[in-house]
Design a protein around this nucleic acid. Structure first.
Lengths: 119, 119, 119, 119
DNA sequence: GTGGTCTAGACCACT
DNA sequence: GTGGTCTAGACCACC
């Protein structure tokens, strides 16, 4: 993964994991990589990897079982919140861009419909 | 500006300038900063700044007047292409994200309308 | 300060600071020691001191101003919660001890009254 | 058991045993563990375990029967003193804490009654 | 000066 | 093997 320089690495890793959760790559209750493996995958220090899980646990995104590992949360509320937060960010950014490019609401909607049919 | 590490800086600068052109910050025929100033603004090497304009000129995004400077293109076709290319990228990325999060076409359109009314 | 071995240092430091907050030694909005000073006072690593403030901020017990320092929270709700939590812990522990020693409710109350008059 | 670093271990062990005596876990005339077993239980040096009983015997808390072992005292006066000393310490500490947190005598009494009803 | 982050390497407790 | 903590020392951005 390639990190930007203006944002803490641990936050960028968290964002990436959140994306994998929402895309379905990581599912409810699934075991996450060990901190050491996470460190290898993202090429970061094990301590930083540890912080990733610590902060995520703090947000309720995962939970840990001593001695066995870290797991994706099973709390539905958290999943809902994650999904809506992520969607809001994506939406805001998108509408700002389209608006800045001069597209009206109707034009944008039309393009969306067109694009969706391609997927 | 913050650069990623996985993409040539000059391309990231060009993307940024394209954005400023589409947002209206940079207008038709407007004078662009000198390569030296560009280097200062983006905190990049003057050679890199030079390459930025060379590549942009190659794409038709700007033109150089010997002795006076570099100016934003006045070619309408280029502007149209820029606008549609940029929109397509933005659209693709957006629809993929929303789709990955499990939003249907109708849900997305509804959210777009809602968001547009906030802007 | 003397640390127990069965509890993370940073939590023991937090407990100590909470006590100082409730005893009035640390007041609303007051500047806390810099992380480096905190490290010296408690003879811990600056990183551990940093973690103390990070966790405390997370609990809403303090807030940081970039470049200037860390300050005791001004949120009344947090203060109320801190006070009630601390009181509950103290109470539980006390009543369990007295009960274990065989003192009845009335005997304990009588002893409390007697002790309060000495203070 | 977890020891603090600022107080001799043998004193901390004695405090712990006193607590077990008052809580009824250790009763009048009951046989105490051998010094070897005591050392194992508390994970301390056998010499330290030996000192524990020596000091306790000096306080009259236990007595030794050559060849058979060490036993909890049967002296009622000692038990009374132990009970009142322990209670006094507990009381002092408790009232100081509550007072420091700003609770009045009446508030404290009210909370005690409330807590006792939970036990 | 302040806090924030990152790396490196160590030790611990739990399973 | 797992995560959790701690120390050491470094660099950064902000004020």
């Amino acid at each position: 993964m390639n990190f930007k320089t203006d944002r803490p690495i641990y936050l960028q890793v968290i964002d990436d994991i959140k994306g994998r959760m929402l895309s379905g790559e990581l599912k409810v209750g699934q075991k996450l990589p060990s901190t050491r493996d996470l460190a290898k995958v993202y090429q970061i220090n094990p301590n930083t990897a540890s912080r990733v899980y610590r902060e995520m646990e703090h947000e309720g995104l995962c939970f840990t079982q001593r001695g066995t590992g870290t797991y994706v949360t099973e709390d539905e509320q958290i999943w809902k919140k994650l999904r809506s937060d992520m969607a809001e960010d994506t939406l805001k950014d998108f509408c700002q861009r389209m608006s800045a490019m001069g597209f009206t609401e109707e034009e944008t909607v039309e393009l969306i419909r067109h694009q969706y049919r391609k997927i």
